[in-house]
Design a protein around this nucleic acid. Structure first.
Length: 580
RNA sequence: UGGGGAAUAGUGUAACGGUAGCACAACUGACUCUGGAUCAGUUAGUUAAGGUUCGAAUCCUUAUUCCCCAGCCA
C-alpha cells in the first residue's frame, strides 16, 4: 500500500530497465497487436495493461496495431469493437492506430530482397506435402525439391504469385533456414501464401498474404517498437522473429552505405503467461462457439469474459485495472480465481455506487395499523461510504413489497428477519412487527401482515430497543416494475475443460447461468424521474450491484446483476442445513 | 523420444545469499439502520534429493511434474 507510486518490478519491467541502462534502447515504445477476428476478453485486458502500462511507466509511446494479415478471418466489425474496448479500458493511443496491412508493400519488397540474398524460395509443394516434408518432433524434415531454385526463377515466380497467375494453395514463398532444425518453426517456414480473398481494408489489391511469423517482427520494426510483448506460446517463434529481421539486415549497414541500404530496427520480444480464470473460458475459438451455438446471446452477453460483456454487466475499467495490478506478470501458467475479479468490482463499486432499494422476488407486506391512503417520504442515504452523495426521498405507504427471502413462517436457526412475532426495521422507515401471513390454497404465502410503531419513524426507537435485522422494501403503489437478470458462472466447474469422456467444455455450461426475474425498484430509478445513475451501476441494498441494460424501455428498465454483495446469511444457512 | 518454457499456502503474487511477506479465498470474533462495508485474529507455503556456504526459495547437480511447438492460423 505504501509503495503505490513505485513502478512494479515484474520481470519485464526489470528487463526494460536493463535495456535502457545498457543503451540497447534509448526509450520505450510498446504496442497492442490484436487480430481483428473476434472480440477482446479479460485476458486481452491483462495484455493491454502490460503493453500500455509499461509504455506509460517508462514515459514511452504505445500503439494500437491491427494484425490483419489473414483476410479470410478478419472483419471490420471486429476492428470497430476492439477500438471501442481498448478505449474503454483506458489505453490511450492518440493517433497511433495502425494496420499491418498498410505495410504489405514494404514487406513485399523485403521478401524480394530475401530472395535475392538466397534466403527465400518459391515452393510448389502442396500443403499436405509441406507437412510431410516437415518431419516431426523427433525426426528431421526433408528439403523441398524447389529449395535450390535459381534467384531469377524465384523472383519471377514470386512476382507472378502476386500478379494472380496461380490458384490458392498452389505455391508458397518459404524462408530457407534448416529442415533439420530442432525447433519446428525454423524448418523453412512459409512467408506468403496465395489467397484470392479480398481484404477488409485493402480490397482486391493483394492475392498473396504474409504469414504471422514473417510479418509480425517487421510490423514492430517499422513502428520502432522496442519491446514486443506477447504471450508464452510465441516463445518458440522468437528465434524466427529474430531470424527474419537479421535476414533483412544481412548486408545492410548502420549508415546505409552499400547495396542494401540502412539496417532496420530490431525490437526485443519478451513473453509472459496469458490469463486463465476459473469458471470461464478464454480462447477466442471457444467464445465464438458459445455465441454460435446459442449458449449465450452474443459477444456482449454479460456472462462472457469479453470486455463488451463485462462492460454490459456493470464492470468498471477501474475494477479491471485493479484486477490486472493484483494478478501481476510472470511466466507461470496460472488460473486466477474468479472471486478475485469479483472482489475488485465490489471494492470499486462499494466506494462509488449509489444505493437504491429494489425487490427482486416480491412479497406483499401490509401494515395493518398504518392509515389507508397515507404516503410519507422518508430520507434515504445515497451512499454511506460517501457523505457527498447526499440523500434522497423514498415514498412509504401501507402496502409494500419485501423480499420473499425476508419472511419465514417457521424461521430456521439464526434467522433474524421477519417471522410471526418478530420485529425488524424497514430501512429508513419504521420498526414493524409481524402478526401473521395469508396463504393460498397451495399453502404458498401470498401476503404478510404486520403493525408498525409510529415512534420509530426514520428507523430508530426512542426507547432504545434494538432490532436484529433491517430489511429493504418498496412502496407497492409507487414502485416501478423492472426486469432483473441474475447471472451465475457460465460453467458449473472451475475448470470447464473437465468434461466427461467424449464431451467437450460445452458439457459444463451452467443451465442456470441466467435467471430472469420481474421485480420492483424505487421510483428514482425510472426513466421519467431524475436518475443520477443511468449509466453507472447502482447497489440494490443487501442484494448486489446492478447495471441498467441496453434492453431497457421507457416503461420498463432492465437491470443486470454485476455481482452480489457478500452474503453471510447464505453461508450460515448452508452450514445449518448441512448440520441436519 | 527433439526443441522451448515453468515450478513459493487452496488461488495469485513478493523475496534478487541474511526474519518466507502481501492479496483473494476459507474460518473466528468485534461493530453495524445493508447478515453489506469496516476492524481484529486464525488456518495454510519454498516439487524432491544431494551439494556449496556461517547462512539457500535464491547458487550448483540430479530427478520429478506441468505447459507450448509437427496451420499455407495468429
Amino acid at each position: 500500500m505504501s509503495n503505490e507510486n513505485v513502478i512494479a518490478h515484474d520481470f519485464i519491467r526489470q528487463a526494460v530497465t536493463e535495456d535502457l541502462k545498457s543503451g540497447r534502447f534509448n526509450g520505450v515504445h510498446t504496442r497492442f497487436p490484436p487480430e481483428p477476428n473476434a472480440y477482446l476478453h479479460i485476458g486481452h485486458a491483462k495484455a493491454l495493461w502490460i503493453d500500455y502500462g509499461i509504455g506509460l511507466d517508462f514515459g514511452g509511446l504505445f500503439n494500437l496495431r491491427f494484425d490483419d494479415t489473414n483476410p479470410a478471418k478478419e472483419e471490420q466489425e471486429f476492428v470497430d469493437a476492439i477500438i471501442q474496448d481498448v478505449r474503454w479500458v483506458g489505453a490511450v493511443f492518440d493517433d497511433r492506430l495502425f494496420y499491418a496491412s498498410d505495410y504489405f508493400d514494404r514487406m513485399y519488397e523485403w521478401a524480394q530482397e530475401l530472395i535475392r540474398k538466397g534466403l527465400a524460395y518459391v515452393c510448389d509443394l502442396t500443403a499436405e506435402e509441406v507437412t510431410a516434408h516437415r518431419g516431426n518432433l523427433t525426426q528431421p524434415g526433408k528439403d523441398s525439391p524447389h529449395r535450390n531454385r535459381p534467384v531469377e526463377e524465384n523472383l519471377d515466380l514470386f512476382r507472378r504469385m502476386r500478379a494472380g497467375e496461380f490458384p490458392d494453395g498452389s505455391r508458397t514463398l518459404r524462408a530457407k533456414i534448416d529442415m533439420a532444425h530442432p525447433n519446428l518453426n525454423m524448418r523453412d517456414p512459409v512467408m506468403y501464401r496465395i489467397l484470392h480473398t479480398p481484404h477488409h481494408r485493402q480490397g482486391d489489391k493483394w492475392c498473396i498474404y504474409p504469414m504471422y511469423d514473417w510479418a509480425h517482427g517487421l510490423e514492430d520494426s517499422i513502428e520502432g517498437i522496442t519491446h514486443s510483448l506477447c504471450s508464452l506460446e510465441y516463445e518458440n517463434h522468437r528465434p524466427l522473429y529474430d531470424w527474419f529481421i537479421d535476414a533483412v539486415n544481412q548486408g545492410r549497414t548502420d549508415d546505409g552505405s552499400g547495396p542494401w541500404g540502412r539496417k532496420i530496427h530490431h525490437p526485443r520480444q519478451i513473453e509472459f503467461a496469458r490469463l486463465n480464470m476459473t469458471y470461464t473460458v478464454m480462447s477466442k475459438r471457444k467464445l465464438i462457439e458459445l455465441v454460435r451455438d446459442g449458449s449465450v446471446r452474443g459477444f456482449d452477453d454479460p456472462r462472457l469474459p469479453t470486455l463488451a460483456g463485462l462492460r454490459r454487466r456493470g464492470y468498471t475499467p477501474e475494477a479491471i485495472h485493479d484486477f490486472c495490478r493484483r494478478i501481476g506478470v510472470n511466466k507461470t501458467d496460472s488460473v486466477v480465481d474468479m472471486q478475485l475479479l469479483e472482489h475488485c468490482l465490489r471494492e470499486d463499486l462499494n466506494k462509488r455506487s449509489p444505493r437504491r432499494m429494489a425487490v427482486l422476488r416480491p412479497l406483499k407486506l401490509v401494515i395493518d395499523n398504518y392509515p389507508d391512503g397515507q404516503v410519507e417520504q422518508v430520507d434515504a442515504v445515497n451512499n454511506p461510504e460517501d457523505a457527498a452523495a447526499g440523500t434522497r426521498q423514498a415514498p412509504f405507504s401501507k402496502a409494500l413489497y419485501i423480499e420473499q427471502d425476508d419472511f419465514r413462517e417457521a424461521p430456521p436457526p439464526k434467522y433474524f428477519r421477519l417471522f410471526p412475532g418478530q420485529e425488524v426495521r424497514l430501512r429508513y422507515a419504521y420498526f414493524v412487527k409481524c402478526t401473521g401471513c395469508v396463504k393460498d390454497a397451495a399453502g404458498k404465502v401470498t401476503e404478510v401482515h404486520c403493525t408498525y410503531d409510529p415512534a420509530t419513524r426514520g428507523g430508530d426507537s426512542p426507547d432504545g430497543r434494538k432490532v436484529k435485522a433491517t430489511i429493504h422494501w418498496v412502496s407497492a403503489a409507487h414502485a416501478l416494475p423492472a426486469e432483473v437478470r441474475l447471472y451465475d458462472h457460465l460453467f458449473t466447474k472451475p475448470d470447464p475443460q473437465d468434461a466427461p469422456p467424449g464431451q467437450d467444455f460445452r458439457a459444463n455450461v451452467n443451465p442456470n447461468s441466467l435467471e430472469t426475474v420481474q421485480g420492483f425498484v424505487e421510483p428514482s430509478l425510472g426513466s421519467t424521474g431524475v436518475s443520477p445513475v443511468a449509466e453507472f451501476p447502482v447497489q440494490f441494498e443487501r442484494l448486489g450491484y446492478f447495471c441498467k441494460d441496453k434492453d431497457s424501455t421507457p416503461d420498463k428498465p432492465v437491470f443486470n446483476r454485476a455481482v452480489t454483495l457478500k452474503d453471510t446469511w447464505a453461508k450460515i444457512e448452508k452450514k445449518e442445513g448441512a448440520k441436519k
